[in-house]
Structures are given as structure tokens and as C-alpha cells.
């Protein structure tokens, strides 16, 4: 139980601080730490494959996209730090978030979730997981592949813009 509390504390703290900071790069890096904390939770829960996938996707890939986006959307170095907006907005957000938190906590605490059967720790080897993915979930896997391809192409098209001077440049190569 103690590892869970530690992981939860660290993850929540990094996430909260990340969304409160003014420095965008620091925010992004702290959020990446919190994603790593979530991966640690998966590892603790015994979902090894998901934990590594989480690190690979979030810490390795999404983080890079976020950091590139931060650096590409600033005019000067000091643009990195963004001010907190109007206090009214912040208070409204806190109130909404607090209300949702209260509802969720109340619901979780009052629901009679039975203790798990003793020794019923589910385990899933990578091989079983692969068979599951390739068997019953093969269609979903294919659709995710198509989705990722489309998303990749779409992201490139959206972000590339419509500058024409790039096309006019001469092809590279030695004379």
C-alpha cells in the first residue's frame, strides 16, 4: 500500500504544480514526470506492458511534440512564461474542479467495492496479450493503425502550412 500512496502523492503533486507554474517548459517537464508516475502505477499494478508503452508514448513521443510546440509558438525567449489569467477565471475553475472532486470522492467512498478475492492477482503475459490483440481485437488494432496514419498525415498537413518558397528551393545534391 505504501508504494501506491507514494506514487499517487508524487504524481498528483507534479501534475498540480505543473498546471500552476508560469514557465511553460517547466510545466511540460513536470507533466512528463507525472506521466512517468502513472507508468510507475501501472508497473505497481502488474501491467508491465502498459507501463512501458506509457513511458514510450508519453515520455518519449508526446513530450517531444509538446516541447516542439512550445518552442515553435513563441516570439521571444520570455514568451515562455505565461501569466495566470484573471482571478475570476481561476476561482471559477477551482470551484468547478472542487465540486467535481467532491462528487467523485463521495461516489467512490460510498460505493461498496468489495475487497478482492485473496490471491486473485491477475497476470497477463505479453504473449497472451499479443494473442488477444491479434485474435478478438484484430479489427480494432487495424483501425488504430489507420487512425494513427491518418493522424500523422493530418498533423503534417496542418502544421506544414502553405508556404511556397520551400518548394521552389533547388533539389539538394553535389554539383
Amino acid at each position: 500500500m505504501i508504494p501506491l500512496l507514494l506514487i499517487a502523492g508524487l504524481t498528483l503533486a507534479t501534475a498540480a504544480v505543473a498546471l500552476a507554474l508560469r514557465n511553460l517548459i517547466h510545466s511540460a517537464l513536470l507533466l512528463i514526470a507525472s506521466w512517468a508516475g502513472i507508468a510507475a502505477f501501472y508497473l505497481w499494478a502488474g501491467a508491465e506492458f502498459v507501463a512501458f508503452a506509457q513511458v514510450l508514448v508519453y515520455v518519449g513521443a508526446v513530450s517531444m511534440v509538446v516541447l516542439f510546440a512550445v518552442l515553435l509558438t513563441r516570439r521571444s525567449r520570455d514568451d515562455i512564461s505565461v501569466a495566470i489569467d484573471s482571478p475570476a477565471r481561476g476561482i471559477a475553475a477551482l470551484l468547478t474542479g472542487g465540486a467535481v472532486l467532491g462528487v467523485l470522492f463521495g461516489a467512490v467512498i460510498s460505493s461498496p467495492l468489495g475487497a478482492p478475492a485473496a490471491g486473485a492477482r491477475p497476470s497477463l503475459s505479453v504473449k497472451e496479450l499479443g494473442l488477444q490483440l491479434m485474435g478478438p481485437h484484430a479489427a480494432a488494432l487495424l483501425i488504430v493503425g489507420v487512425l494513427l496514419t491518418v493522424a500523422l498525415l493530418g498533423a503534417v498537413v496542418i502544421a506544414a502550412g502553405d508556404r511556397t518558397d520551400a518548394a521552389e528551393r533547388k533539389p539538394e545534391g553535389n554539383p
Binding site: L29, E48, L56, M64
Partner: peptide
């Protein structure tokens, strides 16, 4: 000894990019 050791290796390797950026 991990069941998904290859994935672990590349996950840890991908994290080094972050350090380069930092």
C-alpha cells in the same frame, strides 16, 4: 528479468531524448 524487456529497453532509451532537450 521482464516479460517485455525489449520494450523496457526502448522506453528507457526514448527518455534520453528528454535529457538532450533539457
Amino acid at each position: 528479468e521482464f516479460d517485455a524487456a525489449v520494450l523496457y529497453f526502448f522506453a528507457a532509451g526514448a527518455a534520453t531524448e528528454l535529457a538532450v532537450f533539457m
